[in-house]
């Protein structure tokens, strides 16, 4: 099924339930349930929701790190059964290998997939330039700031030129200023990466303005077990920069989504009554 603009479906999620079985009691705990939506080619999707709503669990399942209990989870029409070369993940934590230089960390994915040939090395060099790490190729992770580390993290994920880019709260651990800068950098990089300009991305965050600023569409999850509450298209023009955040459209949509998210966590119930 194509969307209004005629873009083909990239990720098809229908009736998905993910959870785990308690080892002692044997009872099943669902982290997400009855989940259904579609993501189209070149879309930048952000998922927001109250903490513990299973958004990271869902992302892990898309990455192939967790099995789904039932439902269908299909990428390009094929079910996801495990990690594969067509997806890569930007981790929340500092997951860089401390014994590798910046360049070697970025090259890791290509190396693991035996694609580090001349073209691969050129790709690594281009990405270092693109994410603003020129001159830092030879540094080790302990010499990098939080923002720098996440640039490497992002470049490492982009290096394998994935079909679907997964981002798990990549800026959550950064300070406010660095986060602002990184949000802008991410939109710039996402639009500029020539190997797949505007590749399909799935971004998990608990920061609503961040989601509105980055995404083409924001999906709101309910509190545990996570269900899709609403899919909100963000029609702010691209390319976006800091000024967008001061526009009335941005503020309206942020306010609307914040209200929706807080309703899920039960924080705004008293306002309603």
């Amino acid at each position: 099924m194509d969307d209004a603009t005629g873009r083909p479906v990239k990720l098809d999620v229908s009736d998905v339930c993910i959870g785990y079985r308690d080892r002692r009691s044997g009872s099943f705990f669902a982290a997400v349930q009855d989940l259904g939506f579609q993501i189209h080619e070149n879309e930048f999707i952000a998922i927001v929701g109250p903490s513990g709503c299973g958004k990271t669990t869902f992302l892990s399942a898309v990455a192939g790190l967790l099995p789904i209990a039932h439902g269908t989870l299909e990428l390009n029409g094929a079910p996801i059964t495990g990690p594969a070369e067509d997806r890569s993940l930007v981790f929340q934590q500092a997951s860089l290998f401390p014994w590798r230089t910046v360049a070697a960390n970025i090259a890791y994915g290509l190396e693991a997939q035996r694609r580090l040939d001349a073209a691969g090395r050129q790709r690594v060099a281009d990405l270092i330039e693109l994410v603003g790490l020129a001159g830092k190729e030879g540094k080790y992770p302990r010499e990098l700031s939080g923002g720098m580390s996440q640039r490497v993290n992002l470049a490492r994920a982009l290096a394998t030129d994935p079909d679907l880019l997964l981002l798990d709260e990549p800026f959550a651990a950064l300070d406010a200023q660095t986060r602002e800068v990184m949000q802008e950098e991410l939109t710039r990089i996402w639009q500029a990466d020539e190997a797949g300009a505007g590749k399909t991305a799935l971004f998990i965050t608990h920061d609503v303005p961040e989601a509105v600023f980055l995404a083409d569409r924001v999906l709101v999850f309910s509190a545990s077990p996570g269900r899709l509450v609403e899919s909100v298209p963000i029609d702010l023009p691209r390319p976006r920069n800091r000024d967008v955040k001061r526009s009335p459209e941005f503020m309206d949509q942020t306010e609307y989504l914040l209200d929706l998210v807080m309703r899920q966590s039960g924080l705004r119930q008293e306002v309603e009554s």
Binding site: S88, S95, Y108, A112, Q113, T160
Partner: peptide, 11 residues
Amino acid sequence: NYLQVSRVFCS
């Protein structure tokens, strides 16, 4: 985390 990175990149 290191092992998860390794898995995600299909090592």
